[in-house]
């Protein structure tokens, strides 16, 4: 047999695609790190990267911009992989932690910590956000379930309803909190990477790393879940175990991200579709591709959020929603036309 120009998935060869994605991510992070009110000449940029440095440009770079770029990478990557997992779990290409109300639940969990336990970047924050995310995901699944199964549209509808309810709870919590208890609450609610300090990156990193690795280990199971639960079972998958693990891991990813950077929508919806177009539906390639693409996408969105308005920064969630909402409508119409 002659070697084939395309991979097993009938897509472009994965090697170059991953090199390209890695390059795009590095470029977007470099762009992010060199964008801002303080100009950093390329030489000082490299110098600060390689040797550290004491000057103002080096301090800005190392303690503000790079942490922010890394936070963007972690948040974007985590949201995108969480979206991939929810989409496989629900066999629904419209699923996304934000649309499903999972992010809202995470926000309530995180706010509870901030209000009653401690403010700031507590390591507890992602954990409680995870519980909030898991509970709201469970609520949406149970509400959407009928004897005949879960229809995609009904699931989205329940996600919107639960999300709206949780938003009201969030507003109540923010309004009733003592002044200064939750600094930057409004920005946080709309999704913001401005809180990217080295400490927050360090708090988030273990959660995201654990979540992404776990999902990657589940990737063959996720492939089989796309067949439908019955067929997956008959092909030898312990369906319930894989579903539970996926649901918990995806909630962990979405929850921990919300705890640090608030409600950033649609990354988990757009990026998986883009990544599928590049590497196909096999999760062993799709998950890493979605992580890289999600990181690059959010870091770039953040650059746009910082530079679009002359009078100040936009929340990055506003930028992703501007791109994501029309895309969601497009998918919904395409899906509706088929079934």
């Amino acid at each position: 047999m002659t070697p084939r120009a395309r991979s097993e998935d009938g897509r472009l060869r994965p090697g170059p695609v991953f090199v390209l994605l890695g390059f795009a991510l590095a470029a977007s992070m470099a762009l992010s790190a060199s964008t801002g009110p303080v100009a950093i000449p390329p030489r000082e940029f490299l110098d600060a990267l390689l040797h550290g440095g004491a000057g103002t440009p080096a301090r800005v770079l190392l303690s503000l911009r790079l942490p922010r770029a890394f936070l963007g990478l972690l948040v974007g990557g985590a949201l995108a992989t969480s979206g991939v997992a929810f989409q496989a779990l629900l066999r629904n290409p419209l699923a996304d932690p934000y649309i499903l109300g999972v992010s809202g639940g995470a926000a309530v969990g995180a706010l509870t910590v901030a209000l009653f336990l401690s403010a700031g970047a507590s390591p507890l924050l992602p954990l409680c956000a995870f519980f909030g995310a898991a509970l709201s995901a469970l609520a949406v699944f149970l509400l959407a379930r009928r004897k005949s199964g879960v229809s995609p549209e009904r699931l989205i509808l329940m996600g919107v309803v639960v999300g709206a309810f949780l938003n009201a709870v969030i507003m109540l919590m923010v309004t009733l909190s003592p002044p200064g208890r939750i600094p930057g609450a409004l920005y946080w609610l709309m999704g913001d990477l401005g809180l990217g300090t080295p400490r927050r990156v360090a708090v988030l990193l273990p959660y995201v790393a654990a979540g992404v690795v776990l999902l990657f280990l589940l990737s063959r199971g996720l492939d089989l879940l796309l067949l439908g639960e019955q067929a997956a079972f008959q092909t030898g998958l312990s369906v319930e175990r894989v579903k539970t693990a996926t649901y918990l891991t995806a909630s962990l990813l979405a929850g921990s991200v919300v705890a640090v950077s608030g409600l950033i929508g649609f990354v988990g919806l757009i990026v998986p579709h883009g990544a599928r177009a590049l590497v196909g539906s096999g999760h062993r390639r799709l998950l890493p591709a979605a992580f890289l693409l999600g990181g690059a996408f959010l870091v770039l969105s953040d650059v746009i959020a910082r530079t679009a308005s002359p009078s100040g920064e936009l929340p990055v969630g506003a930028v992703t929603a501007l791109a994501g909402a029309p895309f969601f409508l497009y998918l919904l119409r395409r899906n509706g036309g088929k079934s």
């Binding site: 097993e8 998935d9 009938g10 796309l226 439908g228 599928r276 196909g280 539906s281 899906n335």
Partner: peptide
């Protein structure tokens, strides 16, 4: 029926 909501090739 096999899934059609996700772009999966016949071979995979």
């Amino acid at each position: 029926d096999p899934p059609v909501d996700f772009p999966m090739t016949v071979e995979s």
